[in-house]
Design a binder for these strands. Structure first.
Length: 633
DNA sequence: TTAGGGTTAG
């Protein structure tokens, strides 16, 4: 309900004196405001432009306001002054998807003979143009600024918003010109207003993917605000430069800059991807010590961090304490349980979510189907897929089809899987065929394996994955001729296997290892540990599995090679660097190999260690000679 | 004024 006067304002009678401002300042809700507004309409005081402007400001710009109401207040103003125009333009420029209103009102302002846009008008108008990526309108506004003179083009707010507009639209050359013209690059030190300009430029470079230029500017800054740090961290983290994101985050601590809410939400995904649990725990503690509220967004990031860093127990704990849960929060926990192989729990949480009235999203169904597939729950998987389509009315995406093919393939239902693919309304991608190929390898289905590998090779001729998988199928059946043929093909086409890489975090530092890696400062001790491990494992009945080695070498060399796989080096380093019985956590960029998987089982028993390996697809919790995946991965 | 987030098949 809008309490707006329907009677036309009396033009000739002067408005009564304005009521004290404190009345509106004490408003806490729209309800309070509406009461005062009604009173002003009744007494005629609304005709005082200052009183009306004050009402407008509350509705348009405060947290408890209502922009729709503000628009009606503005439209009813008989002669809106410059202040009111600026207020409403600013309010719309800051509201998602409504920036166009700012431009419409701005053009009304240009036609209004009683008001002139001023230095407070242009920043918002430029912001609106930037938000909508309307560079043509933006350039026209830029012309207006120059044409009107009065030093508008030197105003720091206008300049920074001009630079922002060009930067956000990707026109970095124009942004750079203005940036350099502003003189900030010539100043010895960066002052509180200039930082904004630098930040805007950094953000612009990151948006166009020019990380070198962004970093150069960042490094040149003699003073930075938390926004400068956040910009670099979020930029790196969202574009896959996880190590760089952590490096900046750590540099930030060294320079005694306090991270804020945005910093933490931005850095957590990088921590998750790298599996840096210690750092993740530090972030969580930092929230608690500095009273940074763990809301649904930060909570989701923490849940994801704990689950991706191997601590599903902590992920559950954070989930239970989050004050409100949105679909992403639910997805984070369900996805976490799923990659840890806790399919039943994942399905329990899914049901809980539905009971609480939260509608599952398509992303959630991906986690649920993936959980079913890893646990071999074929019937449940079929049921959920059906539920998603028929009841939830969601269109399956390629990821859902991928899960289903994986589910059917792992269960050995080859015909059903192939038929499923043939009926897909979307063209199957490489991942779909890889899922089926993986199933062929698992069940030794050479005939289908060859066909699928051929399809994959046509689809992505330079991707080593299909060649490696086909070679592994031959190898698992002892067909060495087949293995050599694939090897020859790879050699002819100069296709190389992606190098495996594993890492382990100790005291907040990430130690990375490649196969046969000797580059670590403690390489000698690691080598001795690997020898000791090899002897102890053999004494306990371990037999090396060298089937998956692609290279042409004799058996002894093959055995040595598999024993120097990156994940084993990481474990050896963990064993010599941590206290007795302490759990070890390893992250690997590819899937764990069969030999490493069986070795980890032995190591967990012989050395009495819990070993958690996160591979490309999921978690393996090794304890007392058993893996949580039950060898089904 | 500037940055503004989290979840996703193999």
């Amino acid at each position: 309900m809008f309490l707006l006067s329907n009677s036309p304002p009396l033009r000739n009678s002067p408005p009564p004196p304005c009521i004290p401002q404190a009345e509106i300042k004490s408003c806490k809700t729209m309800r309070d405001l509406i009461q005062i507004h009604a009173k002003k309409i009744k007494t005629g005081r609304i005709r005082d432009p200052f009183a009306a402007a004050e009402i407008l400001q509350f509705c348009a710009l405060t947290n408890h306001g209502d922009l729709q109401y503000a628009r009606l207040v503005f439209d009813r103003m008989e002669e809106p002054n410059c202040f009111s125009f600026n207020t409403i333009i600013r309010a719309f420029s800051e509201t998602n998807n409504q920036s166009i209103e700012s431009l419409i009102i701005f053009s009304q302002m240009l036609y209004n003979e009683f008001v002139e846009p001023n230095r407070f008008t242009f920043p918002s108008v430029l912001k609106a143009c930037g938000n909508m990526r309307r560079i043509e309108e933006g350039k026209q506004v830029h012309c207006q600024i120059i044409k009107r003179g009065s030093g508008l083009d030197l105003d720091e707010f206008i300049v920074s918003n001009l630079v922002r507009m060009y930067a956000i639209c990707g026109l970095m050359k124009d942004a750079r010109k203005l940036f350099e013209k502003s003189g900030v690059t010539r100043k010895v030190s960066v002052s509180d207003g200039n930082i904004v300009l630098w930040n805007v430029m950094i953000d612009g470079y990151i948006r166009i993917g020019d990380f070198d230029s962004a970093r150069k500017l960042f490094d040149l800054m003699t003073q930075r605000s938390v926004v400068s740090w956040n910009g670099m961290i979020a930029g790196y983290a969202q574009n896959g430069y996880f190590k760089e994101a952590l490096e900046i985050f750590q540099k930030m601590q060294l320079e005694n800059v306090c991270p804020n809410y945005v910093t933490l939400v931005s850095v957590l995904p990088a921590i998750s991807r790298l599996g840096a649990l210690e750092l993740g725990k530090w972030v969580h503690l930092y929230c608690q010590r500095n009273k940074i509220e763990v809301d649904d967004v930060l909570g989701s990031a923490l849940i994801d961090m704990y689950s991706k860093c191997g601590s599903i127990e902590m992920a559950i704990q954070v989930f239970e304490r989050v004050p409100r849960r949105n679909p992403v929060t639910w997805n984070a926990i369900i996805g976490g349980l799923s990659v840890h192989g806790l399919a039943i729990d994942a399905l329990d949480y899914f049901n809980k979510m539905e009971t609480e009235g939260v509608k599952p999203t398509d992303v959630c169904y991906i986690s649920v189907l993936s959980a079913c597939s890893h646990a071999g729950l074929v019937d449940e998987g079929r049921l959920y897929f059906d539920q998603m389509v028929r009841i939830a009315g969601l269109d399956p995406r390629i990821e859902h089809y991928g899960c289903m093919v994986d589910l059917l393939g792992r269960a050995g239902l080859f015909e059903e899987a192939e038929e499923f693919i043939s009926k897909m309304p979307i063209k199957p991608d490489g991942v779909i065929w890889k899922a089926l190929l993986g199933a062929c390898k698992m069940h030794g289905n050479v005939e289908m394996g060859q066909r699928v590998a051929k399809k994959l090779m046509d689809l992505a001729p330079s991707d080593s994955g299909s060649y490696v998988a086909l070679s592994n199928i031959y190898a698992s059946l002892g067909d060495w001729e087949g293995v050599s043929a694939v090897r020859l093909m790879m050699k002819e086409k100069d296709i190389r296997k992606n190098p495996g890489c594993s890492w382990i975090e100790l005291d907040g530092t990430i130690h990375e290892f490649l196969v046969e890696d000797e580059s670590h400062p403690r390489a000698r001790e690691i080598r001795l540990m690997l020898q000791e491990m090899s002897e102890k494992l053999r004494l306990n009945g371990y037999k090396p599995d060298t089937k998956q080695v692609l290279l042409n070498m004799d058996e002894e060399e093959r055995e040595s090679l598999v024993f120097h796989h990156s994940e084993k080096i990481a474990v050896a380093f963990g064993l010599i660097s941590t206290k007795k019985n302490a759990p070890l956590q390893i992250v690997k960029n590819l899937r764990i190999c069969g030999d490493c998987h069986s070795s980890m089982k032995f190591i967990s028993r012989i050395y009495n260690r819990r070993i958690i390996v996160r591979d490309r697809n999921r978690f393996h919790h090794f304890e007392n000679g058993v893996c949580s995946c039950m060898d089904y991965w």
